[in-house]
């Protein structure tokens, strides 16, 4: 290991390609995410609007009557690359875009809980701890020691399982390298159909580069999300090209 190796660490742009045609909507990724990141079990007062959900799976319906189809859409933080909406608004640098990993980092210990980042996020990918997290007696033993639970009053979101990135960095350091390589986030690991491909957009030989034609949601906003999707179904592409929700009731899920 030489000094030049240390300084010449190549920056990575971790990202995902999610194959919507493979997703069965089983929800294993959601469970794996919550378990990995020490998300407390939902309290009685919680619902899908005020619970902690770092990864959600939406059900999408084909808007046209002919050939009615349903797809499932896993969504987490899109790790926006350009003018990341949440990074620029945070008043105290609790959200930062890491230039070495491309991950939008959230620092709950510095978060004031103003929730400005939540209003800024076009994907509604952020959750606020509206109350104190609590675990039923005995369940604390299942907590992941690598991830700090968050307190009430702070915002959290998906950070591509940063504890796993750190573990990969540690393992690399033992071998004399600074490059963590491609590690595996919990949701990727849990997906039974391997619908989620995790990789580095900077790597021309990597899995992401080979994933063919992909699209992103709300690309028109110009935030360059690093989580992209692929599908062979045209209606999904068409839906993604549209901006806001269409007001016609039958078109919407829910």
């Amino acid at each position: 290991m030489s000094a030049t190796q240390k300084t010449s660490r190549t920056p990575r742009r971790y990202g995902m390609v999610i194959d919507l045609d493979r997703c069965t909507g089983c929800g294993a990724c959601v469970i794996a995410c919550a378990a990995e990141n020490n998300v407390a079990p939902g309290a009685a007062r919680e619902n899908d609007r005020n619970s902690i959900s770092l990864l959600r799976v939406f059900t999408l319906n084909n808007p046209t009557a002919a050939g009615r189809r349903t797809a499932f859409l896993p969504m987490m933080c899109m790790q926006c690359e350009h003018e990341t909406p949440c990074v620029t608004v945070c008043p105290q640098q609790a959200v930062e875009l890491d230039v070495l990993s491309g991950i939008v980092e959230q620092m709950p210990q510095r978060c004031l809980g103003c929730r400005y980042c939540m209003t800024a996020c076009p994907y509604h990918a952020r959750s606020f701890n509206w109350g104190d997290p609590s675990w039923p007696a005995g369940m604390e033993a299942t907590l992941n020691p690598a991830v700090a639970p968050r307190m009430r009053g702070v915002v959290e979101k998906c950070d591509f399982c940063q504890s796993r990135l750190h573990a990969a960095q540690d393992a690399a350091a033992v071998n004399g390298s600074l490059d963590p390589g491609i590690y595996t986030p919990a949701c990727v690991e849990a997906c039974p159909t391997q619908a989620i491909t995790f990789g580095d957009w900077n790597d021309p030989e990597g899995a992401l580069a080979k994933s063919g034609e992909t699209f992103a949601w709300l690309e028109g906003l110009g935030t360059q999300p690093k989580v992209r999707y692929r599908s062979g179904q045209n209606w999904l592409h068409e839906m993604a090209e549209r901006g806001g929700a269409a007001p016609a009731k039958e078109e919407r899920h829910g």
Binding site: C90, Q92, C111, G113, M151
Partner: peptide, 15 residues
Amino acid sequence: VGQPLRAWFTFWHPN
């Protein structure tokens, strides 16, 4: 705000 006691952070780590 969720953590009012941290309000001074804005002066210490201003973005």
